[in-house]
Design a protein around this nucleic acid. Structure first.
Lengths: 151, 151
DNA sequence: CTAATTTGGTTTCTTTAAGCAACCTTATTG
DNA sequence: CAATAAGGTTGCTTAAAGAAACCAAATTAG
């Protein structure tokens, strides 16, 4: 595949994609948010090859998106849990999920119904908002000119 | 690469990733949001090989994320513009950008400063919110049990 | 009006990663 | 004590990414 490396890119989206932008990583993070923690469970739920899963988990751990935790007294049983950094991908994943539900709905599947544990009310669509919480489209924003180079 | 096809996946995140989850597509969408429209400009700004750019643009057009518009009277000059569907990736891209800025900051780059055109005030971090606009973490939500299979 | 350049590609070749299957080691279970 | 499960590693095949060369139509320069 000869993938280009973006580690040093000036664009933080490119750098973010370097960590979770490959095919499987974001799906692994998603599964982790659904509660999956064990190697075999990721493998079965995602239908991913073991060597690829191995590689992705290791990279996600390297990048501090997941933490690898020994469970069972003598080691050799592990869990992969989301770190704070990994958990903060929540808006990304949910925004992507909502976008997919809206624009590529599966006929036999209703859109994600995610609810607040306390109130049991559904979440809103993820939006880019101004300081007052009003939704903004891409056309309603701008990047102010700054002295240093922008990404 | 032998990439697995997710077109028929039950998971809409997987289906979304099928459209914009490959290496370059989301960066192309990002560039388009920054205002890029021409083939050569994408090529230069992203540093992408022409054949790959060609392929990605065609796929994004196929998937209705971009529209290919003839410009110049006799055709053979084109612009690639975001569709409504493409524009609605805004929260996804911005959430990813903010995540990258927070967790992988470049030393010589300040985080994205995106502002409301009208008020000139900075946008907020993209969040998952409850019905009242309160931010929710992944731990504060649940998926209610439903009669049909969930993604 | 002709030559050079730009735009938007296509083709060929090489490199590299994804997917599959087999195998392996250390627990735990039966 | 044998079988199975967890968590990998290794080797092979296939397919996609990247680079570079080439190309045709349209525009611009002279």
């Amino acid at each position: 595949m000869a993938r280009k490396r973006f580690d040093d890119s000036q664009c933080s989206v490119a750098r973010a994609l370097n960590e979770v932008g490959d095919w499987w990583s974001l799906l692994i993070v998603l599964q982790a948010m659904y509660g999956t923690r064990r190697f075999v469970d990721f493998q079965q739920e995602l239908g991913i090859a073991k060597n690829i899963l191995c590689d992705r988990l290791a990279r996600l751990v390297d990048n501090d998106v997941l933490r690898k935790v020994e469970v069972g007294e003598h080691g050799s049983r592990f869990e992969y849990r989301l770190s704070e950094k990994g958990r903060e991908l929540f808006p990304v994943v949910i925004a992507l999920r909502q976008w997919g539900d809206k624009w590529n709905p599966a006929p036999d599947q209703q859109p994600l119904d995610l609810r607040d544990r306390k109130t049991e009310r559904a979440i809103r669509p993820v939006e880019v908002q101004d300081a007052d919480g009003k939704a903004l489209t891409v056309r309603e924003v701008f990047v102010p000119i700054s002295r240093t180079k922008a990404g």
